[in-house]
Design a protein around this nucleic acid. Sequence first.
DNA 1: GGTGCAGTTCAAGCGGTCTTGAACTATATG
DNA 2: CATATAGTTCAAGACCGCTTGAACTGCACC
Lengths: 197, 197
Amino acid sequence: MKGYLWTGGHGSPSNPDAPVIEGRLAPWEAIAVDAVGNVIEFWGFKRNQGRVWALLYLRGEPLTAGEIERELDLSKGGVSMLLRDLERWGVIQRVRLPQDTVWRYGAETDLVRMVRHVIEEREAGFVARIRADLSEARRLAEVAGTVPSERLERLEKMATLAEHVERALRLFIKTSRLDVSGVLAVFRDGASRRNER
Amino acid sequence: MKGYLWTGGHGSPSNPDAPVIEGRLAPWEAIAVDAVGNVIEFWGFKRNQGRVWALLYLRGEPLTAGEIERELDLSKGGVSMLLRDLERWGVIQRVRLPQDTVWRYGAETDLVRMVRHVIEEREAGFVARIRADLSEARRLAEVAGTVPSERLERLEKMATLAEHVERALRLFIKTSRLDVSGVLAVFRDGASRRNER
DNA sequence: GGTGCAGTTCAAGCGGTCTTGAACTATATG
DNA sequence: CATATAGTTCAAGACCGCTTGAACTGCACC
């Protein structure tokens, strides 16, 4: 609703009653784009990061920031930041067509990389931190000398629990990495194997 | 992590008649409790749910709501709601000691159940929704008849991606379920196998 | 240099979630 | 029955992250 681009130049200036022409996005596209946005949000990212990727992927050809802004009804600044994130994670590519002066952005096929990347990063710093905290707690408790051994034991068990959770998380990351190969295969060989499920 | 270190001046070190003596929480306890709070928050729950569970688990004996309120410096209403959630998920138990008039709450050993429970629940409704949305998008696109087949293909690939992600998630849940048995084993047989990693 | 457009940055505002604290119910006790 | 304490509910507000929109830079072309 609030981008300002379409208020000026390119719209249908003939009809002042039609307030907004934003929705060039077809209904089916809107649904698909939002579905991806929801998934991605579920995984701890910004909803609009998923929507941008989905739009670029569905269109198949690189779009400009302005087009994305209009199609998804986002602000100029927002699009800039979203694109930067996506590019940094390697899930979109910035390209400049030969005789063209503006940047365009195209989707890489594996969105999963994005999920993996950030999950991994998070996990790294995070789990390390937790472990450090728990050892510190253990150290303090031992130094104090006044802590009943039975409680110390519980503390140690808690650390073990953390390790188990960590292991499950690692496994998950590894799994989804494996899974990518399947996904990429699907993406690579044309339309051959749809509906295989 | 904002580290709610309640370093405020509520000192009142050694005064038997002081009205309220919060912060009986030993430093090592505070660290451990917060560590669990952070993990749990990472998994999409409330930080204080994790802190309450951790406190109950570390203490080993059931505490009253009032004690929890004081130790963790939470509000009365908040504790009530947190305990209700935790009880509903089966990770704490409400007990009434024989000659006692108040409820006390004790930790079950497997916090993982909580994570699993809610993740499963979320996943169920969520993934179903995504799939429904994507088929709807496909239906609309086909009905429209004007969508280039190449884009339809992309839409289908996107659905496939969603299925793959779903499969990874399912696997993860299954994995963490398996993992629980390991964790529970640790909890059951004393302090035997620490540091096995 | 000047104009206009593409792109970036960031303070301010918005919206959604969590916590608080007061009012309320429930239960035990003299 | 009055009182006190335990426990619940929920509106108001604190809090925090995301988005916006304006000011800015950079670049191309006239």
